[in-house]
């Protein structure tokens, strides 16, 4: 089959603003969008620029806006997007500065990540073996542990688009992972951080983040659970 791969391109060393370019590509229905991008880069237009690494949805490098939705280019197949002769549009994720073509500046995203104390806090003396944890307590924070920091959620969030100071869904998911871990002792510190005007109260439950997550994390629900935890802590 053939599809038209329509890509929003931008090279800051040449272009004043982004422009669309379309590449007609021969492909199989089971190909990934990443396979098509690679084909264009390797055999048609070597300057095409994007990030990629694992190519199967676990490293989080290639979140892009594909046919109007945030997805990983390596985890969406052509047959799920269009038919023979159809068009697939690919743009950079929104809300972060475009550096070149589909590649954005991820530093602000990781700054928000670092701001929520995204690490285990427990200064008690450690036992000789493992700390014990029930199956239920482990399950309580399982969803957040799936996060691959691809930024698909944060860059689909309308609040993040208009206010870059909002920590955003991904950072809150990371905080949730520790807040609801029965072994962790940093909960009140994290809840105080997320109670600031850059934190959870910015969320307007648009559910874009939940729909964007390639790991099927119920992001909006996790944000709501953090909101509730803050209220119960204050009550």
């Amino acid at each position: 089959m053939h599809v038209n791969l329509k890509i929003l391109r931008y090279n800051p060393e040449v272009d004043k603003k982004p422009h669309w370019e379309t590449y007609n590509v021969e492909c199989e229905p089971g190909d990934r969008v990443l396979d098509l991008l690679n084909h264009v880069k390797w055999y048609v237009e070597p300057t095409l620029t994007y990030r990629r690494s694992c190519a199967h949805g676990v490293c989080g490098s290639d979140a892009m806006l594909i046919n109007g939705r945030n997805r990983l280019a390596c985890k969406i197949l052509i047959r799920d997007l269009t038919k023979d002769g159809g068009t697939i549009t690919v743009e950079p994720i929104r809300g972060l500065k475009v550096e070149k073509d589909l590649l954005v500046d991820m530093d602000p995203f990781f700054e928000s990540y670092r701001a929520v104390l995204p690490f285990f806090i427990n200064d008690d003396p450690v036992p000789a073996g493992e700390r014990l944890q029930t199956v239920e307590d482990r399950e309580r924070f399982d969803q957040g542990t799936k996060c691959i920091l691809c930024a698909a959620c944060t860059t689909s969030c309308p609040i993040f688009w208009v206010n870059g100071r909002y920590l955003g869904p991904a950072a809150i998911v990371q905080a949730h992972r520790f807040i609801f871990d029965s072994r962790d002792k940093g909960t009140s510190e994290r809840l105080n951080l997320l109670n600031q005007n850059t934190g959870v109260w910015r969320c307007r439950t648009a559910y874009n983040c939940t729909e964007a997550c390639p790991r099927e994390i119920p992001v909006t629900q996790l944000i709501e659970e953090v909101k509730r935890a803050i209220m119960y802590q204050q009550a």
Partner: peptide, 14 residues
């Protein structure tokens, strides 16, 4: 585990 790694658990918590 002490660094917080979320291992799956057995019914006895190990």
């Amino acid at each position: 585990e002490h660094m917080g790694l979320p291992f799956s658990r057995l019914p006895n918590g190990k």
